[in-house]
């Protein structure tokens, strides 16, 4: 048997809340772990972290955009600004995995692009592979971002968006930023796809290119303000250059402004509760399919359950999961109950 040393979740939570880096790392490892015992402890960890914490703390920021737009360089420039103003930053950088039939591995290269050359205790970067999940953001990202927000002022989630599948990032960030590449077909695709609904802030990077960057910015500006958007938010479009370090300060100010807008309008906690619920539903659906959801009454009933325990939906999730599992047991053969747990590795070796 493997000797997997799983930490005590309640102790871990208090260490995380004190900002101990080793505990943060161990917590993220636990949330990523699919062993049955690890899953139980993850739920306890999240419950302990949620306990007594306001849903109005911190700032979760999603950054997405096509490959090559310079997201990592821009994130690095933003981090410099936050660190200069004394705020701590946690980063989840998501890169694509290769296809499962090609081994499912991943090269995670964002860390090298984001980090500073000097040692910084106020910055924590975890790279993740998206593990072939359709939405582009690994299922682990939501609880991980929640954990990071327990000890860092700012949490940035960076993902590659190819233009049509960034829906997930809308279910994570309080503020979503789209980084556009000037004169690139990706942006046009993006505008056409209707996902223009999602971002709150737009950055057109590489503005040192001049005219193409201005053209892209004006195309986005024309499309961004739509009637069905939230009132009172102006959806800024910023010209920036991460490598030349131009336009960063004004761009950066929009993040604080957007967070204040959400808080003043009373939207922040509502948004996060909605994100948590979406995560629970997605997780259950990924594991059990539509049929599984129907077994416990479908979306309506799930929504009702989640509404009962708004501030700790992780616990609610585990309860529903066990419920579905027990229903499966009575409907199906036990052996086909789930693809997520791997109690036996011998079969594949």
């Amino acid at each position: 048997m493997p000797q997997v040393h799983l930490p005590d979740p309640e102790q871990l939570a208090s260490r995380i809340l004190r900002g101990e880096r080793a505990a943060v790392a161990a917590g993220l490892n636990l949330l990523d772990n699919k062993l049955a015992e690890a899953r139980n402890r993850s739920t306890r960890l999240l419950a302990a972290l949620a306990d007594g914490r306001s849903l109005n703390d911190g700032h979760l920021i999603g950054v997405t955009g096509p490959p090559g737009a310079g997201k990592s360089s821009l994130v690095a420039a933003m981090i410099r600004e936050w660190r200069l103003s004394g705020r701590t930053v946690g980063v989840l950088a998501v890169d694509p995995s290769s296809r499962p039939e090609l081994g499912g591995g991943a090269l995670l290269g964002d860390r090298i692009r984001i980090k500073n050359s000097s040692h910084d205790e106020g910055l924590f970067i975890r790279s993740l592979a998206n593990r072939n999940q359709l939405g582009g953001v690994a299922i682990e990202v939501w609880p991980m971002s929640w954990l990071l927000s327990a000890c860092f002022d700012i949490v940035v989630i960076e993902t590659v968006g190819v233009g049509q599948t960034e829906i997930d990032i809308a279910e994570i960030g309080d503020t979503v930023c789209y980084v556009a590449q000037p004169a690139s077909g990706d942006t046009i695709q993006y505008l056409k796809s209707g996902i223009i609904e999602i971002p709150d802030i737009f950055a057109v990077n590489k503005c040192d290119l001049g005219a193409p960057a201005r053209k892209t910015a004006s195309e986005i500006s024309r499309s961004a303000p739509r009637q069905d958007r939230r009132d009172d938010w102006d959806y800024p479009v910023c010209l920036v250059s991460a490598t030349m370090n131009t336009g960063i300060t004004p761009f950066h100010k929009h993040f604080d402004r957007h967070r204040k807008f959400l808080a003043d309008a009373g939207l922040l906690d509502k948004l996060r509760i909605r994100h948590q619920s979406a995560w629970v539903v997605r997780l259950l659906k990924e594991e059990f399919g539509t049929f599984g959801l129907e077994l416990i009454g479908g979306h309506a009933v799930i929504g009702e359950h989640l509404g009962k325990n708004q501030y700790n939906q992780f616990e609610e999730y585990e309860r529903m999961r066990k419920h579905i599992l027990s229903r499966f047991m009575s409907v199906n053969q036990p052996s086909s109950s789930t693809k997520k747990e791997h109690p036996d590795e011998q079969a594949t070796v």
Binding site: A25, A26, I112
Partner: peptide, 29 residues
Amino acid sequence: KARDVGFEVVYDGIRLTPQQIAQAAQEEG
């Protein structure tokens, strides 16, 4: 190669101090 056989590989590049490597190992788990 490690990516191709299924590892998730954090490539941290060149010119690293031992402290940076240990910190990356911790943060990346």
